[in-house]
Structure formats: structure tokens, C-alpha cells
């Protein structure tokens, strides 16, 4: 019985820590630059505060994601992945969260970058 109590405490601690750690996800990002990665490779780094509105496709394997930049924010506009989670994640940049946009079926990640010193601006 004592052992079970120990496990309950362990689970409570894990749950509490995770709950606290998951709050900053929707907080303000550090910079305004994002990295776009496809298939494990860094495709480009975009400074959203300087970027102009545009649309482009990122292809990996048989999949295509259409990425749109508008008003210094970025999102996945269209994707042919089965779940469409990358589209539902919505916009990042500006005041929107720090959580990366991930499209696992197409191996695409759009993540907030710390700096833009080594990247190209699009």
C-alpha cells in the first residue's frame, strides 16, 4: 500500500511540473526570427519583422506544405498531410506563442530561432 502512495506522489509531481512547464508555450517569443526545417535539415531562417508577405511551398518526400507569411507572422496555409495539425496550429510570430509548428508526416518544423546572424532573409 505504501508503494502505491509513493507512485501517486511521483505522478502528482510529474503532472504538476508538466502543467507549470506547459504554460510558457503560449507566451511571447524571444526573437522574431524563425527557422524552417525540412527532413531534418535547416532550409532557411526568416526574420519575420523584416519579411514581406509571401507564399511558398516546402516539399519533402511526397508531401507539400504551403507556407504563408503575412503581417510579420507565419503559418502553414495548406498541407497534404493526413492530420492537418500544422494548419490548425495557426500563426506564430509577433505576439503569438513560442511553440513550433510541426508537420510530422512531412517532416516540417517551423521553430522560433534565437538569432538570425547566420541565416538568409527572405
Amino acid at each position: 500500500m505504501k508503494k502505491n502512495k509513493m507512485f501517486i506522489i511521483i505522478i502528482a509531481v510529474i503532472f504538476g511540473t508538466a502543467l507549470i512547464c506547459s504554460l510558457p508555450i503560449w507566451g511571447k517569443p524571444r526573437g522574431n526570427a524563425v527557422n524552417i526545417r525540412s527532413g531534418g535539415e535547416l532550409i532557411c531562417t526568416i526574420d519575420l519583422s523584416e519579411a514581406e508577405d509571401c507564399e511558398f511551398d516546402i516539399k519533402w518526400g511526397g508531401g507539400v506544405n504551403t507556407i504563408e507569411i503575412k503581417d510579420h507572422m507565419i503559418h502553414v496555409k495548406e498541407a497534404d498531410c493526413p492530420d492537418g495539425i500544422c494548419i490548425k496550429t495557426g500563426w506564430i510570430g509577433g505576439e503569438n506563442g513560442t511553440a513550433p509548428i510541426v508537420c510530422l508526416p512531412n517532416r516540417l518544423v517551423i521553430e522560433p530561432a534565437d538569432d538570425t546572424s547566420d541565416g538568409r532573409t527572405r
Partner: peptide, 17 residues
Amino acid sequence: AVTGTMSVFAYLPVLTV
């Protein structure tokens, strides 16, 4: 490992909850 970036770990706390 597949996407080659650690930033996906940002989702770990939410997923743990």
C-alpha cells in the same frame, strides 16, 4: 531525431499533461 531539432521538446510538457 527525425526533424533534427530540439524545439519539438516544447510540446513535451503539454503532452505529459
